[in-house]
Write a protein that binds this DNA or RNA. Structure first.
Lengths: 151, 151
DNA sequence: GACATATAGTTAGTTATGCAACTAATATAA
DNA sequence: TTATATTAGTTGCATAACTAACTATATGTC
């Protein structure tokens, strides 16, 4: 019985991640209130394209922690809303490169503001040190669970 | 610009909650590998019933951070698998009380073990102090976002 | 007692998730 | 160079999420 174990009664609150769920829900609500008709999942894809346009679907899936099937569907929906377009790569025709449209580009500014505002609400009384610890723990937990798959 | 703000480039990793997602996925995988045919969402409901059997759907929704529609469907599926039964309350016939069946009861032991094992994998190198901080931050973030709705 | 309001739960509609099986294109190996 | 394996993406299937509109029961007020 290692000393870094949760008491049973606390297991679920960790697995569920109620805090991150609450943040996501609040951000979604703030998008809606601002008249933005995109889901936070769609936003998570746009977010990475704003940083680097023209990523492949697979790369987008890696960066947003999704499998390729989920990524396909998400991009289907983004394409339906004309926020992105798929362009087959010239070098490797198996690969779809995903590009932002002119409709998507102006959304960056507004959504960043809403995201920052949401984070400020969420992190109202949380210190910089606490945030650093949480981020660090998240990363290590993620590594603990994903590196093992390579062994 | 408050000092407890994430840099833009880090926003998404927080909203996404990649660590908690990874834990959930690993736990789901461990259930499957053990031949258990339940989802972690279903388990989250069973988890609360094992602690206190015969809760109403609404109460189960509160404890698992779900709205009532999601709770309805989840219990539909649990009932389909004969893991729970709905019993109308005698005092108030609007209320469905949810009870574990004899099929669900023996699952408690196995799933708790798998959950503990999963948490041990996830928290391998995380100290008790770090865990306490994360839990505390989660709770405060949750409070920050939900208390406001009451104002 | 009758009418309005609140509450618990269900249903319809849309989006998203994951797994497994599939297609098409590319890379490797005999 | 042909056969085999790998890779990127899609599709089918099942579960789950949220919102909004709905039903049925209970409560509160006049």
């Amino acid at each position: 019985m290692s000393n870094n174990q949760f008491k049973r009664g606390e297991l679920y609150s960790v697995v569920n991640g109620m805090a991150t769920t609450a943040v996501a829900r609040r951000l979604q609500k703030n998008f809606r209130n601002a008249g933005l008709d995109i889901t936070i999942e769609q936003w998570s894809v746009l977010y990475h394209l704003w940083k680097e346009d023209g990523l492949s679907q697979l790369e987008l899936g890696n960066r947003t922690f999704r499998d390729k099937a989920s990524t396909t569907r998400l991009i289907d929906n983004l394409e339906k809303q004309e926020l992105v377009v798929r362009v087959a790569s010239k070098e490797d025709r198996r690969i779809n490169l995903v590009f932002l449209t002119d409709i998507a580009k102006p959304l960056q500014q507004i959504t960043y503001e809403l995201a920052n505002q949401t984070m400020n609400e969420a992190l109202l009384d949380i210190t910089k040190e606490e945030i650093d610890i949480v981020k660090n723990v998240f990363q290590r937990v993620y590594d603990n669970l994903t590196n093992k798959d390579l062994l």
